[in-house]
Lab assay of single mutants.
Amino acid sequence: DNLVIALHSYEPSHDGDLGFEKGEQLRILEQSGEWWKAQSLTTGQEGFIPFNFVAKA
């Protein structure tokens, strides 16, 4: 599955970004460039995340 774990917390800075906490698990929905579309397994919310803040779970 496309699961990743957050290496750092991220505060959203643009509409459509997904904020998350360090250690949170996310499911990657789309990989494109440096911003990936993801869904939080904690909150169920979707949005874009910086790819370098996460690692394969």
Rank of each mutant, 00 (worst) to 15 (best):
E11M: 13
L18P: 00
I28V: 10
K37L: 15
G19S: 08
K37E: 03
D15I: 12
D15T: 11
T43H: 02
Y10A: 02
R27V: 10
P12A: 12
L3G: 02
G16T: 09
G44T: 03
Q25Y: 15
H14A: 12
D17H: 15
K37W: 15
S32L: 12
F20A: 01
Q25E: 09
E21C: 14
G47E: 00
Q31T: 11
R27M: 10
A38H: 01
K22S: 06
R27G: 00
A38T: 01
V54H: 02
F51M: 14
D15S: 11
N52G: 09
I49C: 07
H14P: 02
S40G: 01
T43P: 00
P50W: 10
V54T: 03
G44H: 07
L26F: 07
G47Q: 00
L26S: 00
H8C: 15
A6M: 06
V4M: 12
K56Y: 13
I5E: 05
Q45P: 00
L29H: 02
P50S: 05
Y10L: 05
S9K: 12
G19P: 09
K22C: 10
G19N: 05
I28C: 04
D17I: 08
F20L: 04
I28S: 00
A57M: 14
L7C: 14
T42W: 11
Q31G: 08
I5T: 08
W36F: 08
V54N: 04
L26A: 00
G16L: 08
S32I: 13
T42I: 13
I5A: 03
G19V: 05
G23V: 01
R27K: 10
A38C: 06
V54R: 00
I49H: 01
E30W: 10
F48C: 15
P12E: 03
N52L: 08
F20T: 01
Y10C: 07
I5G: 01
H14Q: 12
L41K: 03
L41Y: 04
Q45T: 06
D17K: 09
T42S: 13
G16R: 08
F20P: 00
S13E: 14
L29K: 04
G16V: 06
E46N: 06
E24M: 04
P50C: 14
S13F: 12
H14L: 08
N52T: 10
Q39I: 13
V54C: 10
F53E: 07
H8S: 09
E11H: 14
E46T: 15
L29G: 01
R27A: 06
V4S: 03
D1M: 11
G19Y: 06
E46H: 08
S9R: 13
D17T: 10
Q31M: 13
A55W: 07
L26W: 01
E24L: 02
Y10H: 06
W35C: 13
Q31V: 09
L26P: 01
E21K: 14
A57Y: 13
F48I: 07
H14G: 12
P12K: 07
G16S: 09
G19Q: 08
P12W: 05
Y10T: 02
E24F: 02
H8V: 13
Y10D: 00
S9C: 09
V4W: 15
F48P: 01
E11G: 06
N52A: 09
F51A: 15
Q45C: 10
I5H: 04
Q39T: 06
E34K: 13
L3V: 12
K37D: 01
L18M: 08
W36E: 01
L41N: 03
S40Y: 02
G23K: 01
T43A: 01
E46Y: 11
D15N: 11
S32Y: 13
A38K: 00
E24T: 05
L18D: 01
A6N: 01
R27H: 06
G47K: 01
K56C: 12
K22R: 09
F20G: 00
G44M: 09
L29R: 03
P12T: 06
R27D: 01
T43S: 10
V54I: 07
L41G: 02
E46P: 02
Q39Y: 09
H8W: 13
A6W: 02
I49Q: 00
H14V: 09
I49Y: 03
